[in-house]
Write a protein that binds this DNA or RNA. Structure first.
Lengths: 169, 169
DNA sequence: GGTAAGAGGACCCATTCGGTCCTGATTGAC
DNA sequence: GTCAATCAGGACCGAATGGGTCCTCTTACC
């Protein structure tokens, strides 16, 4: 699959939304500029509120957002979207990017290490993916976003699948 | 995580082993050249035999190896390692490479599509990863293989983790 | 034709992930 | 000083996927 978790997908949505809050909200008197609450983000994104809270909690632990407790508290971005590569989000949610057990830091994880002919050979692949993910920031993902009306549903699927050979499954 | 399944890891090992069989085995009288059995590969790689059989079965379905049933049957490579990109192996085992539900061809899979600000924005990320994986062949992974003694265990871990911030977990 | 070797397919169990809920701590408003 | 709002942390449960095992069918040799 090479699929990342839904939480990571949610995290990107939440972070982009957090940036869209804008530092100049009209009613930003009591609440700090650019700060939003979990329920507010949930309502804006359509993601279940508990899940949003969970994502924000993890992101706060990863140093991507800052939290403010108490009444009129909330979360705010610590860095602009241009300074947040996708790899950082993935690392914050899913932990360090590691394709196989051979590279995920598992000490002696591979029980057949003495026989395995490709021991540690995933490293270059892993590095290539990390570089690819590190080169794309959330701002890039946001900038590429086009209004929904511009994307036909069918065309969306076709475009999304693209060169991922469709006959394989 | 961005982790691919163990089966994919096994598949690479099996394929490399299948290539190492060599087309000029001494006792290759009854068995076709370059052909190996599941138990043989299992013994050579240390992977459990049923798992090897399962991997080979999937790879045969994916068109990467050919099977020969009956006595003195077995499996053989259909293409040289230089012609097998890593992405093909992953696609054969885990299906098409798709990072998120938004790109995996799920019709209307995203229930909050009207709100999601990054709808379909994983496509460039997905493409970047596919290109990275498509550029690396099994021959590269095999060629990069160095004897185990040349790699310090600690250095291996450091190299593997690399710039994936270690403090994240 | 019988026997053995080996692939093909179906099945089951364990692990992990996604999602939800509850309780406690902190801060601002009244 | 009290109350309300909101985040923080943890535990819990259900679903889904992956990993592994077993049985059956096919094929070639004797």
């Amino acid at each position: 699959m090479l699929r990342l978790s839904k939480l990571t997908d949610y995290a990107v949505v939440v972070l982009v939304r957090l940036a869209q809050a804008g530092p100049a909200l009209p009613g930003a008197r009591v609440r700090e500029v650019g700060m939003q609450t979990s329920p507010g983000i949930a309502a804006a994104t359509g993601i279940p509120e508990p899940t949003v809270a969970k994502v924000l909690k993890i992101l706060a632990g990863g140093g991507l957002v800052a939290s403010q407790r108490g009444a009129h508290g909330g979360y705010r971005l610590l860095r602009p979207l241009t300074a947040i590569p996708v790899s950082d989000v993935i690392a914050a949610i899913d932990g360090p990017i590691a394709l196989t057990a051979c590279v995920e830091g598992a000490a002696g994880g591979c029980e057949s290490e003495s026989l395995c002919p490709v021991r540690g050979r995933w490293d270059p692949v892993n590095t290539a993916i990390q570089e690819a993910l590190g080169a794309i920031t959330l701002a890039d993902m946001q900038a590429a976003a086009v209004p929904r009306a511009f994307r036909l549903p069918a065309a969306t699927l076709q475009d999304a699948r693209g060169d991922a050979q469709p006959a394989a499954e």
